[in-house]
């Protein structure tokens, strides 16, 4: 329905403002002093970009072929992503980076967990077979790619 699509676009604008605010805060914080340590992003976080992208692609395929099975496969990939993110956080804290270690890790934990919360919301929307869920889902894939890219650039 038209109004669901409108609402999802507006929701994405609001989410975009939250992440823009955090991004600009991150650039300001990094420029404040010499205490910023480059964060060794676990390789798994990069692979996760592909997991979400694959999920998006499967979802798009499901929409075009009108296939319930593919829809559920995309949802399952989304759940896999959340599970792998848990492992990313575990790897990171084992490498000695907890939430308060350095502003770089503080921002990483914040951005990634906020993103994960949005992904879990997306999984709920997919499970409810909401018509505008794919649009939201693609944006969440793009958002994770953006976050990883951001931290790669700041290394």
């Amino acid at each position: 329905m038209k109004r669901q699509t409108t609402a999802v676009i507006l929701l994405l604008i609001a989410v975009g403002m939250v992440f823009s605010a955090l991004t600009s805060a991150m650039f300001v914080r990094r420029g404040l002093g010499g205490d910023w340590i480059a964060l060794p992003i676990p390789a798994l976080a990069l692979w996760n970009v592909l997991v979400l992208a694959a999920s998006s692609a499967v979802l798009e395929l499901s929409r075009r072929r009108n296939s319930r099975t593919l829809w559920w496969a995309a949802t399952a990939l989304g759940m896999l992503f959340v599970g792998l993110q848990l492992q990313v956080w575990r790897d990171l804290s084992q490498a000695g980076f907890t939430v308060s270690t350095n502003p770089s890790s503080s921002f990483f934990y914040l951005l990634s967990s906020l993103h994960a919360a949005h992904v879990i919301g997306g999984i709920a929307a997919l499970a409810a077979a909401a018509s505008a869920a794919p649009l939201y889902w693609h944006a969440m894939s793009a958002l994770w790619a953006y976050i990883v890219l951001l931290f790669r650039c700041l290394q």
Binding site: M17, A21, L22, V99, S100, P103, S106, L110
Partner: peptide, 25 residues
């Protein structure tokens, strides 16, 4: 509202972290 409240929310999260998780934003 759509453009402004998200920024307040982000700021609030950072403040909560400074208070309760030992970060230094």
């Amino acid at each position: 509202s759509l453009l402004a409240f998200g920024v307040l929310l982000a700021a609030g999260l950072l403040l909560l972290m400074d208070r309760n998780l030992g970060t230094s934003f």
